[in-house]
Every structure is written in structure tokens, then in C-alpha cells.
Design a protein around this nucleic acid. Structure first.
Lengths: 340, 340
DNA sequence: TATTAGCAGACGATATCATTGAGTGCTAAA
DNA sequence: TTTAGCACTCAATGATATCGTCTGCTAATA
């Protein structure tokens, strides 16, 4: 695209992102002091519409960007706008306090949501990439024990056992030994299924096998699905596009479902745009998604996501998100929260 | 109150709960086939308004119940309406699957929210009632360990340690020994503060004391505040009272704050009404709250709450809530999820 | 040829007004 | 004490006119 038409296009998107109102030629000319008459702008708008970058809400309305328009904008016209306020707030919350990673991520989501008035969410490392390393049993007293599962990436999960006399500590001990020898290096995803296969072995060796089997199965299922997750959605109520209750309801119900977030996190959309720092922007069903990945520990990675109407300040959002993920990596990067 | 006027009052509340529209004398007469003329009903309505049980939205509108009206209704006119659909759904989800308590509570909240279209939430046992029993350290490999905290009520919390060479496993071991001997029987609430007091002892005995101190402090703070919590709020979007975005925003923002839920759970409102089964109904700021407590383990207790507009089907809600808490108690009652 | 001025027409948004209907309160009769 | 009847209130609805913003087109201009 030629110089002027791009200039006009960018102005339209910027203006619409700010005001949420269809942009007209005259307003644009005045507000952005463009050195072209409104008629010229109108001509170019018509062209942009023909090319599919702009849309009209009705015949005599101003223009709004189409999804294709947003894509072009994000791919070619994005500018980093890092917000001093955000960086201050974040560094203050994350570096000054003794948060563990999970809390830090939650705080980050909350801050991001507050500063953008969009929905934010976080996804932990995908369990399908992790393998079981040990199962260790840790007796507490005669009636209870804690079982700790550790993956090769250092991720841990715990399960509390409490039992009456029928199950002896010995049984649990024997059970974990069997599981350890048979399930080491199993993908976390496949644990429940593999456990089914060794059920007969348990039956032969362990006294209260059905009870223990069932308890371990429950723990494994949870472990496999525990794609640590957090979402903060109420701030999208500030977006004018969701003053329509029906539309709001639709989105809210989606965002209330953890599976939707998992999908958003995993699906690498074919139409997605990648920034130089590896963030990803995509558009589905009148909703825009920006995600950024962070790596902590050896192979552990997670994602931060921002979700909202396509009319969002992409430059600012991407800058924020990348700042947050970089900050989290720098704090929790090598060996966890304990060495700074 | 005399017979007829109560009958009329109950009909008005029932009708309003169902329709969310101000109730007029004529409609009432027809719909509930009351053997009184509309004029009689009108007279009684006027009386009920004078007594403060009813309100008008404008001079010539029908009547709606006031907060005082709801209180009277709940205290004197409540009928148990247990829903077959709910009981089926719940027993199916809770008894057939191998959920741990936390997941069971989340599922229950989700189901309740879905069936009532109100906001639901859960609060775990208040940490102020629990004392630290042991701290046990559990080495995983040369570079990491899991630390388990156990309270007298059997509640456990874990903290992952990962460290580079500077901290030795030995140091952590020594540290936990000191903490164990000094902090046993401390209220969980007071752990962070007590830890400060024994800081000098750590300084004298442990090599990398500041780092370990900071890690344990973080863990203790989290433990003290970890009043295990869950909320499912998006269903209130179905309530006509929240088709006003401003009102919705206000409520949503409240319900998005974990502290608000904690307050709702702890504050035993002076105006609250208690049912025979120990549930509690209260009204604050144009919002109604129904809570029910369940006990599992020895002293561990938690609360389920339903929050929404005062216009809710109290009979049904109370019945549901009490069914759920009873079910949870029966399944997780004595010794945890493993013996059924 | 590219740009601009000017004008007619489209259309959402807003204000005004009359109408409708569900509801009340009051009075007088049963 | 209850009821029938009537006058009055007021939100909701729909029709109508007006306004302002915006487009698209045409003709003039650089």
C-alpha cells in the first residue's frame, strides 16, 4: 500500500481503538491534522473498504476496521507502547514480595486485567510434555500420609491420604513401590490409562487394592488435567462492546470454562500473527487473543493471555504482555523463587 | 399476622420471585385463584406496605417485597423444595467419580450455579482455628525438596524448594528442625509473625538463613491466607436485575474479590436468619446471601454460599444448599475421600 | 491525472407527543 | 367487612419530526 492510504488507515484504526465509534472522514482530517481534504480521505476509505480492510455499520456511517484490517495493522503498523505505570506496578508487586510462581502469575493477570480492562488468563505447562519421575510417599502419622508426584521438569503435585485401620501404611508403601517401578517416565497425560494396565499387579500384591487404586487414579486424573490455570475476566465489563448483555453473556460463559482457555492456549491458529518477541495475535469469533509464553525452570513453560474485543490497543497490550513474561522469566527463571 | 393477609403476602412474594415484575392485585387474584376481590387484596396490600413488608416502584405500580418482607417470608413461610434434577446431578457427579474434596466442592459450586443461575462460592476452613502440627521435609533430588506443613485438623500445604549449590539440603533440614521445635502448636494465622521472632535463632544456626527465612515466610503467609476458595459468578448474567450493566459491574467486581467472599463467609450478620438445619440467610446492599456449613475431617469445616438479587427462590436454594453440604459431609465426612 | 469543493441522500440518534394498559386509592353500596 | 366502580397515575410503546454525521457522486480545479 502507498504512503497516504496507509497513513489514513492507521489513523482510522488508532481512532477507532480509542473511541469505539465508527470513524468519519471529516473528524479524522481534523483530529489527526491530515493534509488531505475529507473528500480525498473518503476516496481512500472507499478503496480500503473494497480491499477488505474496513467495514461500515450502515450505508452512511463512518468506517470501522475489519478483522483483516486488524491483521494488517498488527503485522505492519504496530508500535511498542510500554507504560511506565504498568512496569512500576508490576515490579513493585513481583519483586518486593515473596510470592511463589503461581501467586506471581495470578497477580500479573490481575494487574494486566486492571490496566487493560480486558480479560486475562494464564496457563501452566502442558502436562503432555511431562513425564513422571518419582512417586514418593511421606508418612505423617499412623492415619495419614502425603504422596508427592514429581515430573522430569521438576513440577510437583501432592495427594493427601487419610485412612482408617483397613489400609495399612505398608500397603500404601508397597503400592507406591509398584507404581514407581512401572510408571517411571510415563507421560503425565497417560498415567490414568497406564494405571489401568497395572491394576492386576496391584490386585496380586496389595491388600486393599481397589481403594488404593481408586485413590491413585483420582490423583492421576487430576495431575494430568492440572494445567495450572487462572483467569480474571470481570474487567471486560468496561468495554463498550459488551454493554450488550447478550454479547457479554456469550463471552463470559466461554471465559468461565477452563477448557476454552486451554484451547485458546494450545491452538496455534493458522491466521495468527507472531511478533518479533514471539507473542501471538489471533482472532476468532469476534474476539481477539494475544498470548505470550514464558519459560521458568528447565522446561517448564506457561502462557499469559489477553482476550477481548478486536478493538484493543494491540501495541500497548503486546508491550505489556511481553514485559510481564520477561519479568517473570527474570525472577523465576533459573531455579525457582528462592534465589534472587 | 392474620390468615388472609399472610396468604396474600406469600402469593405476592412467590409471584415476584417467579416473574421479577411488580405484582398487581388483579393478576394475583386470577393467577392464584384467591377467593377475595381485587379490592380486598388492594386493601391488604396497602396494609402490608404500611407495615413495611412491601414496596412500590412508582405510585401506580404493583408491589414488590421489601428486604423486611423477604426476611419475614424466609422466617415464617419457607417451604422446602428439593429438586430431583439437582439431587441426581449431584450424586452422579460426586459419588461416581474419584474427586478429592477440593474438586468436589468446585463441582458442587458449578452445579449449584447452573441450576440456580446465581453466584456460588466456597470457603475452606478458617486458618485462625488451626495449629501447626509438623513441618516435614522431603528431599527429591540434590537440587530440590518438598516441604509439607500439617495442621492439627489434618489440613496440609506444600511448598517446593529448588536451589542452586549455595543452599545445602542440610541447611534446609536444620531449618525445619528449628521451626518444628519452635513453632509446633502455633496458630496458622500467627506463623508469619512468630517466624519473625525466631529469625535470630536461624541466623545463628543456618548458613543461608536470609534466603531460607524469606522462603519460609512466603510459604507461611500463603498458608495463613489460604482459606481455600472458589467462586462461580457468571450465571447471574441470567438474572433480569442485572440486565443493567452498571449494577452488574458493581456486583461482579465485588464477587471477583476473594476478600469479599471471605467477609461474606465470616461475618455473621446480626439480621441473619437461621434455618433449622443451620443455614444462614442475610441481606446486604441489595444482595441476598445464603450460606450453609459442612464439616469434614475432625474439625475442618467449610462453607458453601449462594449470592444473588434478593428476589431468589429461597425455599429451593436453601433445600439445595443443605442437600449439597449434607452430601459432602456424608462422602468426605470421617476420614477423607478414600473410604467409601 | 489527482485532488478538492460542494451537494444530495441515507440513516442512526434524539426529542416530542399521544395512546394504551396495568395498576392504585378512594368512595359508596352490599 | 368486603366488594364494585370510577378517577387518576405512570411506565411502556409507537408514530413522527428533526438533527447531525457521514457517504457517494459530480463537477471544478491544480
Amino acid at each position: 500500500m502507498k504512503g497516504r492510504i496507509v497513513e489514513i488507515f492507521k489513523a482510522i484504526v488508532d481512532e477507532f481503538i480509542q473511541t469505539a465509534e465508527p470513524v468519519g472522514s471529516k473528524t479524522l482530517m481534523n483530529k489527526y491534522s491530515l493534509p488531505y481534504s475529507s473528500a480525498t480521505i473518503r476516496n481512500d476509505m472507499q478503496l480500503l473498504e473494497e480491499m477488505g480492510y474496513l467495514e461500515k455499520t450502515h450505508t452512511s456511517s463512518g468506517r470501522i476496521p475489519s478483522t483483516k484490517g486488524y491483521q494488517y495493522y498488527c503485522e505492519n503498523l504496530l508500535e511498542d507502547k510500554l507504560d511506565k505505570q504498568l512496569t512500576n506496578m508490576l515490579t513493585a508487586t513481583l519483586t518486593n514480595s515473596r510470592l511463589d510462581l503461581e501467586d506471581a502469575i495470578q497477580q500479573s493477570c490481575d494487574i494486566l486485567a486492571q490496566m487493560t480492562n480486558l480479560a486475562t488468563g494464564a496457563l501452566g505447562p502442558d502436562s503432555s510434555s511431562q513425564r513422571l519421575e518419582h512417586i514418593k510417599l511421606f508418612p505423617i502419622d499412623e492415619k495419614s500420609a502425603v504422596c508427592v508426584f514429581i515430573t522430569n521438569t521438576g513440577h510437583t503435585e501432592t495427594k493427601n491420604f487419610r485412612f482408617e485401620e483397613e489400609v495399612s501404611l505398608n500397603d500404601i508403601q508397597k503400592c507406591t513401590e509398584i507404581l514407581n517401578s512401572r510408571l517411571k517416565n510415563t507421560l503425565v497425560d497417560e498415567l490414568p490409562q497406564k494405571l489401568q494396565l497395572i491394576k492386576p499387579i496391584l490386585e496380586n500384591n496389595v491388600y486393599r487394592h481397589e481403594m488404593l487404586f481408586s485413590a491413585f487414579l483420582g490423583a492421576f486424573i487430576k495431575f494430568a488435567n492440572d494445567n495450572f490455570y487462572y483467569a480474571k475476566t470481570s474487567n471486560i465489563l468496561y468495554q463498550p462492546e459488551y454493554s450488550d448483555i447478550e454479547r457479554l453473556k456469550q463471552l463470559m460463559e466461554m471465559l468461565d470454562d477452563t477448557n476454552v482457555w486451554r484451547q485458546l492456549g494450545n491452538n496455534s491458529n493458522q491466521l495468527a500473527i507472531k511478533t518479533s518477541s514471539g507473542s501471538e495475535l489471533s482472532w476468532v469469533n469476534d474476539v481477539a487473543i494475544v498470548k505470550s509464553t514464558f519459560r521458568v525452570g528447565e522446561a517448564e513453560e506457561g502462557q499469559l493471555m489477553v482476550v477481548g474485543p478486536p478493538r484493543m490497543d494491540y501495541g500497548r497490550i503486546v508491550a505489556m504482555l511481553e514485559y510481564v513474561t520477561a519479568l517473570i522469566e527474570s525472577i523465576y527463571g533459573k531455579g525457582g523463587p528462592n534465589e534472587r
